[in-house]
Design a protein around this nucleic acid. Sequence first.
DNA 1: GTGGTCTAGACCACC
DNA 2: GTGGTCTAGACCACA
Lengths: 86, 86, 86, 86
Amino acid sequence: MSDRPKRIPPYRLAAAELAAEIRSGIYDQGEPFPSESALCARFGMATMTIRRALEVLREEQGLITTRWGKGSAVVPPAERPAPEIE
Amino acid sequence: MSDRPKRIPPYRLAAAELAAEIRSGIYDQGEPFPSESALCARFGMATMTIRRALEVLREEQGLITTRWGKGSAVVPPAERPAPEIE
Amino acid sequence: MSDRPKRIPPYRLAAAELAAEIRSGIYDQGEPFPSESALCARFGMATMTIRRALEVLREEQGLITTRWGKGSAVVPPAERPAPEIE
Amino acid sequence: MSDRPKRIPPYRLAAAELAAEIRSGIYDQGEPFPSESALCARFGMATMTIRRALEVLREEQGLITTRWGKGSAVVPPAERPAPEIE
DNA sequence: GTGGTCTAGACCACC
DNA sequence: GTGGTCTAGACCACA
C-alpha cells in the first residue's frame, strides 16, 4: 500500500509537454506562446490547472515570462537555465 | 450644420434592453441572469462595454447584484427601486 | 469684392487627397486605412479637422466605413458609388 | 502552498503614488495635474488602467476633480477629506 | 488636445 | 467558469 507508484498531477504533465515543446525550439521562430484559453482547450483542463502548469514553466524552469493582459512569451534559449537533472 | 440626433452610447442601449427584460419579469421564475460572456456574444460587444452596462443596472438602477466568481442575480421585484422618470 | 475665388477648407483638401488615394487602389491589397491620429500627424491637422475629412469620405462619398474603437476600412471598389461630377 | 503576498493591482499602485504627490503639495503652486496620456507614458500603463487610478483619486479620496475636455485639477488642501486610516 | 467610450483580446482571483 | 483587471490601441465628444 505504501509502495505504489507516485501519481503525477495533470498540471505537471501539461508543464512537461510544454517544456519539451519550448526546448524543441518550435516557439523560437516568432511563434507566439499559446494563451491560457487556448491551452485549456488543447489539454481539456480547467483554467486553474493550466495556470499551475504555466507557473511551473515560469517560476521553476524559467522558460517563459508572462505579462498581465498581454500573454506569455518564451525566454530566448541563451537566457534559459539548464534543465534540472532530477 | 447637420441635424443628427445625439448618439446614445452602446452600453446604454444594452443596459436599457436588459432593464426592460428584468422589469418584464422574465428572470423572476428562477432564470439565472446571463453571464458577461453570454451578453458579449448576444450584443456583439466587448467585455468592457458589457461590464459598463451591468454597472448601470447595478449602481444606477439597483436591478441586479453581482458576486465575484458567482455571477449576477436579479434583485426581487419587491426590493427594486422605482424606475426614474427622466 | 464679391467675386474672389472660393477658399477650399482644409478638411476638403485632406478628403480629396485621401479619396484619390482610395480610388488609386493602394488600400485594396490589404493595407489598413490610417488611423485618425496617423492622419493628424501626416496632414498636420487637428483631430476635428481630420474627423470632418473622414466624415466626407464616409457620408458623402461612401468610400470608407468606420467602426467605433476599431478604425476605418475602405469599401471594396465594387460597392463604391460612382464619383459625383460637380 | 506558497506564501506569496497579496498582489496589489497596478492601478492602486499608481493611485497611491499620485496621492502621495498631491498630499506633498507639489501641485499646489499652480502646477497643472498631468493629463491621462502623460500618466500613461510615466507609469507605462494603458489608458484604462490610468483612468482607474484617477477614479480612485477622484471618487474614493476626493483629491482631484475632472472636467470633460479640460483635464483634472487638484482639490485645494483646505477642501480635501482627511486620509482614511485603514 | 483633453477626457470618455469602445474593441478584442489577454491574464488574475474567487467559487 | 464566473467576474475583475489589464493591454494597446482605436474612434467620439467637449472646450
